[in-house]
């Protein structure tokens, strides 16, 4: 375990020594960012919309007291999604989607000697292959999280008004009351931390694959489980430190 962690730290430092030219890294980052964005936008949209809807319905089910105004439902949906559900659930979904993709891709490149081919050309394979992926994830995750925030609040609106639990007016009043801008900052910081963890852990797992197709599959699985655990731990740490 400790040995793995040490190897991971060494791997991280190799990203930054003697890298390729900034222009190449920049172009590769843009390519990777587009790939991550396009591949994940659909699943993130679906998941966040439903999470917003479910949150809204469940909160209204629990709010039976006549003393509490119905607009509280909107308020609670906003707080829960912005603070926790949008960044964390989105990141866990992305750990599955992006993490397995990164680990599988790098693992395949490793076992088919494509990484060796890069190295033999005198190219630093970690900086060429991994650094753009990490930067792309750090760039795109916050965008996806912002999208998830909007969609889950919209999902709550649709679910709330369609079931008649809350009127449109009440919901909007709810989501506009007592707004703390720092919560958004907090969520974005979290999403950047998660992006970094998921992309580096998955790259690490993929890059050190050896063997055959079986090991590539195993590397993908380990990448996802490790990333998810790291995200949950980091989630707790962020809440302790930043709130």
């Amino acid at each position: 375990m400790l040995q793995h962690f040490g190897k991971y730290l060494l791997f991280m430092s190799s990203l930054f020594v003697r890298g390729e030219s900034p222009r190449i890294i920049f172009n590769r980052t843009i390519d990777e960012a587009i790939l991550i964005g396009i591949n994940s936008i659909f699943i993130v949209a679906i998941v966040s919309t439903f999470i917003g809807a479910v949150t809204c319905v469940q909160v209204s089910y629990n709010l039976t007291s006549a003393l509490i105004p119905r607009s509280t439902i909107g308020f609670m949906v906003r707080e829960m999604t912005i603070l926790e559900l949008a960044p964390t659930i989105t990141s866990i979904v992305l750990a599955g989607k992006v993490g397995s993709n990164i680990a599988g891709g790098l693992g395949t490149m490793q076992i088919t000697e494509q990484v060796d081919a890069l190295e033999v050309m005198g190219i630093n394979s970690t900086s060429y292959l991994v650094l753009p992926k990490v930067m792309a994830a750090v760039l795109v995750f916050p965008m996806l999280v912002v999208l998830a925030m909007f969609l889950s609040i919209a999902g709550g609106y649709v679910a709330g008004t369609l079931t008649g639990e809350i009127t449109a007016q009440e919901y909007i009043t709810g989501i506009r009351s007592d707004f703390i801008p720092y919560n958004i900052t907090f969520a974005l910081i979290k999403s950047i931390v998660f992006a970094f963890l998921i992309s580096t852990i998955s790259s690490f797992r993929g890059y050190y694959t050896s063997g055959g197709a079986l090991e590539v599959g195993a590397a993908s699985t380990t990448a996802v489980t490790n990333s998810v655990i790291a995200v949950l731990i980091a989630d707790y740490v962020c809440a302790e430190v930043l709130l």
Partner: peptide
């Protein structure tokens, strides 16, 4: 160095 690998190692 130019190198051809046994399994070709093309970037797929």
């Amino acid at each position: 160095i130019g190198m051809l690998f046994q399994g070709s190692a093309l970037f797929d």
